[in-house]
């Protein structure tokens, strides 16, 4: 009995230590590039949607709806896992930590009710996808907004 308890408790102590190392590495990764620029939510210029509320953006990115308010299909485009812009979007627009967003999606994913948004590697990639996908909605730095997209939430 004593051996067993020591075994499990020892294992947990090791796990916490490993996790703390990884957390330190994760935090360092995110401190590297801090961007002072605003994050804006954009759709293709060909999409008739011109203005969304924070709740509407939240509903689309958290999978609560698959439609824009006008009834058209909405396809959210996320940015790379653990990227600074994604962390900031989660915190500033969705008002949730990345862990909370992950927890939310694991609930939907593991009940077979949906898949998290597909993610692309950069803001430039978001623009490229939106150029061909009128149903798409993404977020980028304000300085990267060009003629091909319209800002629907800032």
């Amino acid at each position: 009995m004593t051996t067993k308890r020591t075994g499990i408790v020892t294992l947990f102590i090791h796990l916490v230590v490993v996790a703390m190392f990884l957390q330190a590495a994760y935090a360092a990764e995110n401190d590297n590039e801090s961007i002072g620029d605003d994050i804006v939510v954009v759709v293709s210029r060909l999409n008739p949607v011109r203005d969304l509320t924070r709740t509407q953006v939240e509903d689309i990115f958290l999978g609560r709806t698959q439609q824009f308010p006008n009834g058209q299909r909405a396809v959210p485009i996320d940015q790379a896992e653990r990227s600074t812009i994604r962390e900031r979007f989660n915190e500033e627009v969705l008002a949730r930590t990345s862990a909370q967003v992950r927890s939310h999606w694991s609930r939907i994913l593991f009940t077979g009710r949906g898949q998290p948004p597909r993610s692309v590697t950069s803001s430039e990639e978001v623009l490229r996808v939106l150029a061909t996908q009128v149903q798409g909605i993404g977020y980028i730095e304000r300085r990267l907004v060009d003629d091909s997209v319209v800002v629907v939430f800032e």
Partner: peptide
């Protein structure tokens, strides 16, 4: 720490660092 615990730790370290919601 015994062999079994070590195995669990190594496996978990891999999982912890794996990309989340792996999907191409």
């Amino acid at each position: 720490m015994n062999k079994c615990q070590a195995t669990v730790l190594i496996l978990l370290s891999v999982i912890l660092n794996a990309p989340i919601f792996a999907q191409s």
